[in-house]
Each structure stands twice: as structure tokens, then as C-alpha cells.
Simulated assay, not measured.
Amino acid sequence: MKITALCLSTATIHLLSSVPGAAQTFTQSQRNAMNHVSQVLAAATACPEYKPNLVLLALIGVQYKFSIEDPKVNAIIVAKAKEHKAGIEAAGKTIGCLAAWALYGPGGQNVPDLLSRN
């Protein structure tokens, strides 16, 4: 999966694009949700044993009213995902991937079930 392209899947993009266009500014809740999306995408990229739950990622966009097709949303998610991926790599793949799993795997502390094993 390439973060720069954010090729989640056609189904996910269609689900996210059904949300009205994002406003020029985002609430803190929207930014937090985008940050979770970016962390999961970074983990799925840095840790090939994990895959993102595309349905739940799409539902986050619907719940928080942002579309990944919105250029501002896309730019935020891509930039944050690059930062998170660098953090995972800096921590070391084993520790970084285990931390992501603890946050987003089944029973995750942040948002459970956003990551699963391949």
C-alpha cells in the first residue's frame, strides 16, 4: 500500500466520497479522526503483517463528515501518515508495529479493530 497515493480501495473511496465536502477548517474531533486514519495507514504500510479495516476507516469519514477525496483532507492524512510511519521505523519495526497493534488491533486502546492481521 502506498501512502502517497492513498489507494485504500475503490469501495472505500466511494463510501468516503458520499460525505459532503469538508469545510475549509476542521474541528478538533475531525482532526483527531483523520489522525487515527493516518496512523492505521502508516501501520499497514510499515507493518506488512497488518491490514487496515477499510469499512471502519470509511465509517470514520462518514461519522466525522470528511471525505478522503477532499484535497485538504487527503493532504492532512498523507502528511500525518508519513510522520507516523517515520515514528514506527524510528522505534524499530518490532516495537513500532506492536505499538500500532496495541492501539488499533482487536481490543485496541485507541480505536479497536482498525487493524487486522493479513
Score class of each variant (00 low, 15 high):
N74K: 15
A33R: 01
T12S: 10
A44T: 13
E69H: 10
V37F: 08
I77D: 06
I77K: 00
A33M: 01
S38R: 01
L54H: 12
N110H: 11
Y50H: 04
P20N: 12
L57H: 07
A99R: 13
E83P: 00
Y50N: 07
V73S: 03
N110Q: 15
E69V: 05
A91T: 01
P20Q: 11
H36Q: 07
V40A: 07
P112Y: 03
A46Y: 01
L41W: 04
S18D: 11
T10N: 04
S116F: 10
A81G: 04
K2C: 00
S18F: 02
A99M: 09
V73D: 02
A23T: 14
A86Q: 09
S38Q: 02
T10V: 14
C97T: 08
N53R: 04
C7A: 15
T27M: 02
A43D: 04
T27D: 09
A58C: 14
S29V: 05
P71W: 03
Y104I: 02
T25Q: 15
S38I: 01
G108R: 01
V19C: 06
K85S: 07
V62Y: 06
C7P: 10
N118V: 10
G87W: 00
A99L: 10
A44R: 03
D70H: 12
S116I: 06
P106N: 03
N74M: 11
A79M: 07
F26W: 13
Y50E: 05
M34Y: 09
P52V: 07
T94N: 15
K2E: 14
A102I: 07
C47V: 09
A42C: 06
A100V: 01
T94P: 00
Q109A: 05
V37E: 08
G61Q: 07
S116D: 03
D113V: 10
A23L: 15
T27K: 12
N110D: 15
T27F: 09
L57F: 10
A75P: 07
N35G: 15
L114R: 06
T25N: 15
Q109I: 14
I68C: 07
A43N: 13
K72F: 11
L115G: 05
L6V: 13
E69W: 00
I60N: 01
E89R: 14
V78E: 15
G61E: 03
K72G: 05
L56C: 01
Q39L: 02
P112E: 10
Q30V: 14
I88W: 00
H36P: 02
L16S: 08
G105V: 08
L115K: 00
V78D: 06
A44Q: 04
E69P: 00
T12G: 08
Y64E: 03
I68K: 03
S116C: 00
A100C: 04
T94Y: 14
T45A: 12
I88E: 01
L41T: 02
G108P: 06
E49C: 01
A44V: 01
I13A: 14
A5N: 13
A91N: 09
G107N: 08
K82V: 13
G61P: 02
V55F: 13
P52L: 03
A58L: 00
K51H: 14
A23N: 15
K65G: 12
M34I: 05
K65C: 08
H36S: 05
T4Y: 13
V37A: 13
S17L: 08
V73C: 09
L6N: 05
E69Q: 09
T10S: 12
Y64H: 06
D113H: 11
H14V: 05
